[in-house]
Simulated assay, not measured.
Amino acid sequence: MSTASQVATELTQPGTRGPSAELHLPEVPNPGEVAPKDAREISRIFFVRLAELEEGTRDHQYVRNTLIELNLALVKYAAGRFRNRAEQMEDIVQVGTIGLIKAIDRFELSREVEFATFAVPYIVGEIKRFFRDTSWAVHVPRRLQELRIDLAKATDDLSQRLDRSPTTAELAEHLGIDQQEVIEGVVASNGYTAGSIDMPMEDSSDHTATPLSDRLGAPDADLEIAENVQALKPLIEELDDRDRRILRMRFGEELTQSQIGAELGVSQMHVSRLLTRITTRLREGLLVAE
């Protein structure tokens, strides 16, 4: 007997008490240990009951909390995609649980989709938002990440005490570290956020604000074409005379396939197959060269 069937029958057993019995729901002593397949079946029953209960009541809270515990496996599954991140897995799971709670509060059985399908995007989205808001724009050693926090606290403390911004020497003395470490920490702090190249920058000469992107050079549009032409030359030389003639007529003289077929005494379909074979060979040669 599956767990879902087992817990469902407990409603009919004499002496059953507790919130589940009062709400006419299956008794789930350890929701986190329920198998995923059974959790889906039980969750559907609890969602039906949740929709009938008034939000904020003790019964509503019980059903909602049970749904959270039943579906924590979804959070752990989604969090596993981010196991290579520097953050602790426990922190990622906690953030993902927030996404799970949002999904439970917004899910409706009338959507006619599985709750897992509905919830995973919420969970993953919450985790990605966490990384976006807390992750560094560039990778720096953890020692410098922690030093940035210490420097921020020390700067606030000394600024209030001195009524001015502290010097490097004062920060070093306050934290008990070398001035060089303070400088490293300040430089590393610049990597916490990255500025947009579309951010307006004021030009001191005429006090006009133009985006940084307008001042950056752009790749030459013809450069890639020139590189491809040079890379194609030795590949074309490896072709036989007929293949080179077909390429010249099609791309140099810009003849149609029918005109090329008439010139060679073959059908238009045969010319099409020849062109496909030739261009595929050249394309593969370019990819190998790259």
Rank of each mutant, 00 (worst) to 15 (best):
N65R: 11
T66A: 01
A79K: 00
M89D: 15
E87H: 10
H60Q: 11
E90L: 15
R85G: 05
L70H: 00
E69I: 05
N65G: 07
A73P: 09
R81Q: 07
D59H: 14
R58E: 13
N71E: 02
A86R: 12
I68F: 10
T66M: 04
Q61M: 12
R64G: 06
A78E: 04
T66Y: 02
R58S: 14
R85L: 08
F82S: 05
D59V: 12
R83T: 15
L72A: 06
G80H: 06
Y77A: 02
R85D: 03
D91P: 08
D91L: 03
Q88G: 11
N71A: 06
A79S: 11
L74F: 02
N65H: 11
D91E: 08
N71I: 02
A73Y: 05
V63I: 09
L70F: 04
I92E: 00
R58N: 13
I68Q: 07
L70V: 08
H60N: 09
A86P: 13
A78F: 04
V63L: 05
R83P: 12
Q88N: 14
N71S: 07
K76L: 10
A78L: 04
V75G: 01
N84V: 14
L70E: 00
I68E: 08
A78W: 03
A79V: 01
K76R: 14
F82P: 05
Y62G: 04
A79Y: 00
H60G: 06
R85P: 02
R64F: 13
M89W: 14
K76H: 12
A78M: 07
V75R: 00
Q88L: 12
G80V: 10
D91Y: 01
N84S: 15
L67Q: 04
R64S: 11
Y62T: 06
L70C: 02
V63E: 08
V63P: 08
F82L: 03
D59R: 08
E69L: 12
R58W: 11
M89K: 14
K76W: 13
N84I: 15
R83M: 11
G80E: 13
Q88T: 13
V63N: 06
E90N: 09
E90V: 10
Y62H: 05
E69D: 09
A78R: 00
L72G: 09
R81F: 08
L72Y: 07
Q88Y: 10
E87F: 05
T66I: 05
L70K: 00
E90S: 11
R83N: 13
A79N: 06
K76M: 13
D91H: 06
A73D: 10
L70Y: 03
Q88E: 15
Y62K: 03
Y62S: 03
R83L: 11
K76C: 12
A73Q: 09
A78G: 01
D59A: 15
A73H: 07
D59F: 10
M89N: 15
K76I: 12
A79G: 04
L67R: 01
L67Y: 02
D91C: 07
E90T: 13
